[in-house]
């Protein structure tokens, strides 16, 4: 009860923090998709390079977020600014997005690609009209994983100067204020679920109905 009371009494502050949280992950996901999608497409035909890049991604993924922030703030260019927070989030998105783009493009059924080029499509058309649309579900899954992760990771960015829902938790700890912590924690969890649902909705609109509920054409492992 007291939690709900706290929520209602502080609705303005909470709305502002939620908005900031949302803005941070929005900036990060847009940048991450632009960068890592491009990287995934570029490395798609080079196995060695791809293994290297994905290896780097998985090492980055295993770095604890507080460490990542801690390292970034000590680099003068980033420092205690939004740059550090965004950079950390973009770096974490590397593995899920690059790996899924690479795997998805390579797992497209070879006979479909042969049919496409056999019909006279040039390489650009094969990639744009056939390979990418077929890879889209898996690529999208990677973006979803990255986005949901960002929502959680962003909370710790309050220790490097961000103002977002994590602030409710960190202040709740210093003031031993349970309601603050609960409101912060629940809202972050809800945001993760909500973001995932929005992505699921976009995915449904964006992906051809011919690919729904079907693992036939693409091996979905690794997402």
């Amino acid at each position: 009860m007291s939690t709900i009371k706290y929520f209602i009494n502080n609705i303005n502050k909470i709305t502002e923090l939620t908005y900031e949280h949302f803005i941070l992950i929005s900036i990060a996901i847009v940048l991450a998709v632009i960068i890592w999608f491009t990287v995934g497409v570029v490395i798609r035909n080079n196995n060695k390079l791809a293994n290297g890049v994905i290896g780097v991604g998985s090492i980055i993924m295993s770095i604890p977020s507080i460490s990542m922030y801690g390292i970034l703030v000590t680099i003068p260019f980033f420092g205690l600014s939004r740059k550090s927070a965004v950079t950390a989030l973009v770096l974490y998105a590397m593995l899920p997005i690059v790996r899924n783009v690479y795997v998805a493009l390579n797992e497209v059924d070879k006979s479909i690609l042969e049919a496409a080029s056999g019909m006279g499509m040039n390489k650009k058309n094969v990639l744009l009209k056939v390979q990418l649309p077929l890879a889209l579900p898996v690529i999208f899954a990677g973006v979803r994983v990255a986005l949901v992760m960002m929502v959680g990771v962003a909370t710790l960015a309050v220790y490097i100067g961000e103002r977002n829902l994590g602030r409710l938790i960190s202040q709740g700890i210093t003031r031993t204020h349970t309601d603050m912590v609960l409101v912060g924690g629940i809202l972050v969890a809800l945001m993760a679920i909500l973001v995932d649902m929005i992505m699921a909705f976009i995915q449904k609109k964006l992906i051809s109905p011919g690919l729904h509920n079907s693992n036939e054409y693409i091996n979905q492992e690794g997402c």
């Binding site: 949901v148 929502v151 959680g152 990771v153 909370t155 710790l156 994590g166 938790i169 960190s170 709740g172 700890i173 031993t176 349970t178 912590v181 609960l182 912060g184 924690g185 629940i186 972050v188 969890a189 993760a192 679920i193």
Partner: peptide, 17 residues
């Protein structure tokens, strides 16, 4: 899975309380 969506910071904080 949903519980995992609660950030680690919050989990830690809840146990503090």
């Amino acid at each position: 899975n949903t519980a995992q969506g609660v950030p680690s910071l919050a989990i830690v904080a809840i146990f503090l309380n």
